[in-house]
Simulated scan of single mutants.
Amino acid sequence: MFRSYLRLLLFTFGLLVGVQVPGLINDYSQRVEAHLLESREGLKGFEATARRFFNGDLQALVRHYRSSDDPVFNSDANSIDSLLIRNRQFEREWQILQGPWLERTWHVLVRADSQLREETLNGYSYQILLAPEALAWGLSCALLLALLVESLLLLIGWVVLGGRRKPVAESWR
């Protein structure tokens, strides 16, 4: 009986962990989008200047600022350059998050920007989504966790017992 409750507890834990995956991916996507919109907003004034004087080429604007002897312009060139680098990073993240669900999931769980993932995890509030993908993730994680743990415990028991089976008690009949 205890073993059945332990299985049920393990399955429930796997289910609750699994339903968090779509919520985490959604929160990460929203954070990337917010940062992307903010970086675009930060570049708007410089883009207007680049359109006006350099046919929209921001790199030409940066080169022009760098070629100046004025330390203020040099400092602004560094600021614009860092804004551009950050914007490209968010654009790449956003493009990846528009791909298929498996690619998005793999990216967020394994290859995501560490700073953005940390921000997402710090601000994440656990939730139970009743969306189909959340249920699929939950059931998949629950079954996989239950299968792995029970298989591991059976393997350990088999190794400890030396591959012997316990004798089966005779029936009362």
Rank of each mutant, 00 (worst) to 15 (best):
K44C: 07
K44V: 12
K44H: 05
G45Y: 02
G45T: 01
F46M: 08
A50Y: 01
R51H: 12
R52C: 09
F53M: 12
F54T: 07
F54N: 00
N55C: 10
G56E: 01
G56N: 06
G56Y: 04
D57S: 11
D57Y: 11
L58H: 11
L58T: 05
L58R: 10
Q59K: 15
V62I: 09
V62N: 04
R63Y: 10
H64I: 00
Y65H: 11
R66M: 08
S67G: 13
S67M: 13
S67P: 02
S67W: 05
S67E: 14
S68A: 09
S68D: 07
D69A: 12
P71G: 00
P71M: 00
P71I: 01
V72C: 02
N74A: 07
S75T: 06
D76A: 13
D76Y: 07
A77N: 00
A77Q: 00
N78R: 08
I80R: 00
I80C: 11
D81T: 11
S82W: 10
S82F: 14
S82A: 13
L83M: 14
I85V: 14
R86P: 13
N87E: 15
R88W: 11
Q89A: 15
F90R: 08
E91F: 13
E93D: 15
W94P: 03
I96E: 05
G99M: 12
W101R: 15
L102M: 03
L102Y: 04
H107V: 03
V108C: 01
R111E: 09
A112Q: 01
S114Y: 02
Q115S: 09
L116T: 03
L116Q: 05
E118N: 05
E119A: 05
T120H: 00
N122Q: 07
G123C: 04
Y124T: 10
S125K: 13
S125W: 05
Q127H: 15
L130R: 06
A131N: 12
P132M: 11
E133T: 14
L135Y: 05
L135I: 14
A136E: 14
W137T: 02
W137C: 10
G138L: 00
G138S: 08
L139Q: 07
C141R: 11
L143K: 01
L143V: 07
L145Q: 03
L145Y: 03
L148M: 09
L148Q: 07
L152P: 05
L153I: 12
L154N: 10
L155D: 07
L155S: 12
L155T: 11
G157L: 00
G157W: 06
W158Q: 10
